[in-house]
Design a protein around this nucleic acid. Sequence first.
RNA 1: UGGGCGAUCGUUCAAUGGCAGGACAGUGCCCUUUGGAGGCACUUAUCCAGGUUCGAAUCCUGGUCGCCCAGCCA
Length: 567
Amino acid sequence: MTSNTESPEIRTTSNFLRDIIEEDVRTKKFGDATVQTRFPPEPNGYLHIGHAKAICLDFGLADEFGGKTNLRFDDTNPEKEEQEYVDSIQNDVRWLGFDWERLCYASDYFGQLYEWALQLIRAGKAYVDDLTADEIRQYRGTLTEPGRDSPYRDRAIEENLDLFTRMKRGEFPDGSRVLRAKIDMASPNVNMRDPVMYRILHASHHRTGDDWCIYPMYDYAHGQSDSIEHVTHSMCTLEFADHQPLYRWYIEQLAIFPSQQIEFDRLNLTYTLMSKRKLLQLVQENRVKGWDDPRMPTLSGLRRRGFTPEAIRAFVTSVGASRTNGVVDFEMLEHFQRNDLNRRAARAMAVLRPLKVVIDNYPEGRKEFVDVANNPEDPSAGTRQVLFSRELYIEQDDFREVPPPKYYRLSPGKEVRLRNAYFVTAQSIVKAPDGSLIEVHCTYDPASRGGNSPDGRKVKSTIHWVSTAHAVSAEIRLYDKLFSKPDPYDVEESGDVLDNLNPNSLEILTGAKLEPSLADAKAGDRFQFERVGYFCVDPDSSPGKLIFNRTLPLKDSWAKLEKKTGA
RNA sequence: UGGGCGAUCGUUCAAUGGCAGGACAGUGCCCUUUGGAGGCACUUAUCCAGGUUCGAAUCCUGGUCGCCCAGCCA
């Protein structure tokens, strides 16, 4: 079921979830039942990397114990849910590398849930309440004061049955009545103060259409759905811990399969956020280009950005699970992504900000092919031929008229290696009247073909290049952190999270020059542009108009050094 | 201020009464036809106070701090 191709250095350390399951299997807590889990998203948005952690836990742990995992849509609130989200979620789970045993919906169980509600009413465990939402809130009490019983709490069973069936038939308007569980209005746990089981919602559901006008609440639906599917280990995030007594209460009252809920911590990352509500807001207010904007922490955004499922899986398993709230450094994710791409991404030479170089002693009109490794990390990736000629583009950053200390690249009088080609020495520069640099003139050493000089001469730097006459142009989209603060919620008194959006999270370069082999790269293809970073062809790209997204830059120890000594 | 949960290097996860360890980040060196990658080394932690024990990060007691809960959302 799962494709576990985690990189070898990812040791699966123990975590408390695995310990619990191991213990349950050992003690046969569920008899001979196999481990059964479920991943239960509400289809009200796109999946993000926080969900990836839950997915890896739900699918991964079940798989470890020879169990199965269902994908179940928790679709009990038709007002927020859409088919678009159902589709994207399935797509993203598969992309991450998992496949489910069964595809389920809470709405599959609406009929059963309704029958069980009748059963609870008959047992005197549920009642129809005519209080308004506002009144229910007032009767609920506060965190420190107990609630009070609703005046409708002791309605006769027959009357409750009558009212509830009429609620279902659509005789009452939205909000006029609810069905409540009769538990304990004085419970210190507010979730147990006669929680609402059903509300009236004359809304069209993405699957059941207008079949229903009453919908079960999460608490009334989730545990029973788990139970119906014989879920043994129902893992969810920490904020549901207070709901566990209620989860168990319904299961016990109904005397059905005893699924057990176990909570773990949410994944948080620096410089971004995981709130579906906030992500939706970013999309709706056009602060980003959509759910799959490469700056988004959504799986679709990360995919478009060039992140790989392998790296994301390795990352979330490395981060582990516990019950402590924390925030993981975004650098951790970047590390796993670079690690993966370094091994797999084909190399290419690409110049993001071109500077023209003319090799004065290289014959005009001559061109030649040089041999280049497709991936130095992987000899089996083979080699290719790249055109070299008298006029080239190099990176603007790779030339300094006045080199700072420790700057090893091209500067007047200095010799460097053009990767896989020749040694060149900068001889002179040409400037425009405004003083800006137009081109650099060099001489090359014909004996250094391939990048080594027979006399054993060393150079301190190797730079990449592209032949001007053969280069293909491309648009490059550079992405940076979505938010400018590690904690986006770190705002002034009356401020909003979105105030912390990084205004420079996207930079578009239109004049990039790439080696010719990149001309027929297809959407989704990933490359390492040597010495620059990892890039992925954007779906906006077309044969005549190449567009690359920068997944991540390469680590840049020179930039770090320069910043340090410059400061 | 009621209830629930938690607290270990800067971050994250281990250590399940017996030498506090890994990963990320950081620092230094080596190596390098990517200032990439790789190799080596180094720095840094058990919230506090008591107690039990030959021995406590782990068990007990009391504090402190943090997160979650008062939707007819999930």
